[in-house]
């Protein structure tokens, strides 16, 4: 099974686990598997069906936005990582 590394602030929704094993042959299916196991993550990762703009998914060093996005194929040996983009400002 592939693994997804969870960023520190979201580990409150995975019972403290830093890494979760997931099913699926694509990044999208892997995220579905993650959210099925830990439903509270959904609102913080997705806005409707799209990944929130500040949520990045990396496979190794590669951002899936520069691959095939949620359709990027993965295999059981892959390690995925959720990386938030930190942004702010006075508006």
């Amino acid at each position: 099974m592939a693994k997804i590394r969870i960023p520190t602030p979201l580990r409150a929704f995975t019972d403290g686990a830093a890494s979760i094993e997931v099913d699926g042959g694509t990044v999208g299916e892997a995220l579905d598997s993650l959210v099925a196991q830990h439903p509270e993550l959904r609102d913080h990762l997705f806005q409707e069906e799209e990944l929130r703009s500040f949520v990045n998914i990396f496979i190794g060093e590669e951002d899936i936005r520069f691959l095939q996005g949620l359709d990027t194929e993965i295999n059981a040996a892959d390690s995925l990582r959720i990386i938030p983009s930190i942004a702010g400002g006075r508006g």
């Binding site: 602030p9 979201l10 409150a12 913080h44 703009s53 930190i86 702010g88 400002g89 006075r90 508006g91």
Partner: peptide
């Protein structure tokens, strides 16, 4: 994380909220 609001109050903006993480 910390950041500054130049010439503005130390109050989160709507932009801050849209990009914020829980916990």
């Amino acid at each position: 994380y910390y950041h500054s609001h130049p010439d503005s109050p130390a109050i989160p903006s709507e932009y801050d909220r849209e990009h914020a993480l829980p916990n």
